[in-house]
C-alpha cells in the first residue's frame, strides 16, 4: 500500500458515498445513469469473487464488501425505491449497455492472464470498468443541468483513476516484477474517457453554459 493507492481508493469510496448520500437524502437520482450503475455492480460482482477464495488483508476484504454492497444498493434504489425511481431520467438514459458487456466478455476470453473461471471473470471486470462510465457521460450530455453532486461524483471517480495510475508508476519502480499489462491498458483507456469528459466539463463550467460533448 502506498499513498497514491490509498488516495485512489479513498477517492473511489468518497465518490460512491457522495452518490449514495445524494440518493438517500434528496431521494433523487436525477442525472445518474442506471446503466452505468448496473455495469459497476456487474464489474464488482465479477471481480471480487476472490473474496471467497483468497485473503489479502482486512482492508482489502472490507473495501470489496463495501463496493459490492454500495453498487447493488444504488441499483436497488434506482430501480425499486418508491420515490427515487420516479426521478430517474429513463428516457434520456438510452445507452445500450448490453452492447458493452458481450465484447468485453469475448475480449476477456481471448486476452487474459490465465484461462481459469476466476481469471477470465476478473479480466472481464477490468475491460468492463474501462467503458462502464460511457452511459453516464451520454446522460450528462443530454441532461440540461449537471447538478453539483453528480458533477462531484464524476470528478472523484476521475481522481480515483488518476491516483491509480500514479500508484502503478510508483509500484513499477519500487517493486520487483510488478508489471500488469491488462490492468494498465484498460486503466489507461478508462482514464482517457474521463480526461475527455473533464475537458468539456471544465470548459462548460468556465463559460457557465450547458455541457456539450462532441457527438
Amino acid at each position: 500500500m502506498n499513498i497514491f493507492r490509498l488516495a485512489g481508493d479513498m477517492s473511489h469510496l468518497f465518490s460512491i458515498l457522495l452518490l449514495l448520500l445524494k440518493i438517500h437524502t434528496i431521494k433523487s437520482c436525477a442525472g445518474v445513469s442506471l446503466k452505468t450503475q448496473e455495469l459497476y455492480a456487474l464489474v464488482f460482482a465479477t471481480r471480487y469473487l476472490d473474496i471467497f477464495t483468497g485473503y489479502i488483508s482486512l482492508y482489502n476484504t472490507l473495501m470489496k464488501m463495501f463496493f459490492l454492497w454500495s453498487s447493488f444498493t444504488i441499483v436497488w434504489y434506482m430501480r425499486y425505491h418508491n420515490v427515487v425511481r420516479r426521478s430517474y431520467d429513463k428516457d434520456q438514459d438510452t445507452f445500450r449497455h448490453y452492447f458493452l458487456i458481450l465484447p468485453c466478455f469475448i475480449l476477456a476470453l481471448l486476452v487474459h492472464e490465465k484461462f481459469t473461471f476466476l481469471e477470465v471473470l476478473w479480466t472481464f471486470s477490468l475491460y468492463l470498468e474501462a467503458v462502464a462510465i460511457l452511459p453516464q457521460l451520454v446522460l450528462l450530455q443530454r441532461t440540461r443541468n449537471v447538478d453539483n453532486l453528480t458533477g462531484h461524483y464524476v470528478f472523484f471517480l476521475g481522481a480515483y483513476r488518476s491516483f491509480y495510475i500514479l500508484n502503478w508508476i510508483y509500484r513499477y519502480f519500487t517493486e520487483q516484477n510488478y508489471y500488469k499489462w491488462i490492468t494498465w491498458i484498460s486503466g489507461l483507456v478508462q482514464t482517457a474517457l474521463y480526461a475527455d469528459f473533464f475537458y468539456y466539463y471544465v470548459k462548460s463550467w468556465r463559460n457557465s453554459e450547458r455541457l456539450q460533448l462532441p457527438a
Binding site: H12, D50, G54, I56, K64, W122, N177, K180, W181, I182
Partner: peptide, 10 residues
C-alpha cells in the same frame, strides 16, 4: 505477460 501474485488492488 503479467507479474506474479494475487490481485491485491481493488
Amino acid at each position: 505477460n503479467q507479474g506474479e501474485g494475487p490481485h491485491d488492488e481493488l
